[in-house]
Write a protein that binds this DNA or RNA. Structure first.
Lengths: 161, 161
DNA sequence: TGGATATACTTTACATATCAACTATTTACA
DNA sequence: TGTAAATAGTTGATATGTAAAGTATATCCA
């Protein structure tokens, strides 16, 4: 019996190889997310909060709220509340755009940058702890296949099927 | 620039191949979950609700609440509410165990089975729509690598590091 | 046999995902 | 110009993930 079916004590085999792909992705994700969630919480963050901050750090400057949302594959209303909470903790700033007053630009603060910096090393350690038993070649191969697996799905607008 | 970094407009390359693995798993999962969530909602279910029902159908008989939780990698309090809601909709039954009165056994009802049956074909279509461009060989290889990737993580008790 | 411990949940509280509906502002165009 | 449509974001309601604390029952063991 393949591994996932044994782990979940599933009685029926997979109907399709594609089904096995999807369910195994979901499974790995659950396990990974659980660990990362624990780490982030030690630093007073949740995963989505961390993601938003990391996007802003990577950008290096202000971004419109919806741009942050699209990079996170977050549904729009979720971003409003998430960013509001980060702003309330002074981890980001949120300012109305001068040119288009519908737009609110958010940027990471130095307090936010400091918090992220504290997480950099523990995160690298976590990556190694979770997947350090895989060789670089295996990792690259797995990444390539994961890229191909999501090829048919538009990343920018998940709702456009 | 590797694909995920371009998709998310990330400016820095990955520090580790293991990091790329984890982040690509999270990415595929987000995209997959989004699509499946939409499908389930058309049938009045959420993903966790569907999972619980599928576990009970697969089992073919009653299971203790916590057994359902462990197969879903759900934290315990979440299961209580989820199962209560399914019971309120008559999709499952929940009965106190005669031998051990701490235990509540849940089982899927015929109404629950009918609902799941309606989803079987759309789900197979979805698997094909998402990953149908991958060959069987690629799927199997990807599954093997995903299994290896989670090898170090105990599936039964995610909290036991 | 009785008290400490373990087990199987439940309850509460807070954060996020999701949809639907709404506000404010801008753009397109007749 | 002025009205319809599009865009950017907010608000409200329901469901789940998570931790912490509580309840009921069972088990261990001195």
């Amino acid at each position: 019996m393949p591994r996932l079916e044994r782990e979940t004590r599933k009685k029926r085999p997979f109907d399709l190889p594609q089904q096995a792909v999807v369910l195994n992705v979901l499974r790995d994700n659950e396990l990974f997310q659980h660990r990362f969630g624990q780490l982030f919480r030690e630093y007073g963050l949740t995963q989505p909060q961390y993601n938003a901050l990391r996007i802003l750090r990577g950008e290096g400057g202000p971004l419109p709220c919806l741009e942050v949302a699209s990079r996170m594959i977050a549904v729009v209303p979720a971003i409003t509340r998430l960013l509001d909470k980060l702003e309330a903790r002074d981890l980001i700033t949120k300012r109305q755009d001068a040119g288009d007053r519908r737009v609110w630009n958010v940027a990471i603060t130095s307090k936010g940058l400091n918090l992220l910096a504290k997480l950099d090393k523990p995160l690298l350690d976590m990556y190694r702890a979770l997947c350090g038993h895989m060789t670089k070649t295996e990792c690259n191969q797995l990444v390539k296949l994961l890229e191909k697996a999501r090829q048919r799905i538009t990343p920018e607008s998940p709702e456009s099927s």
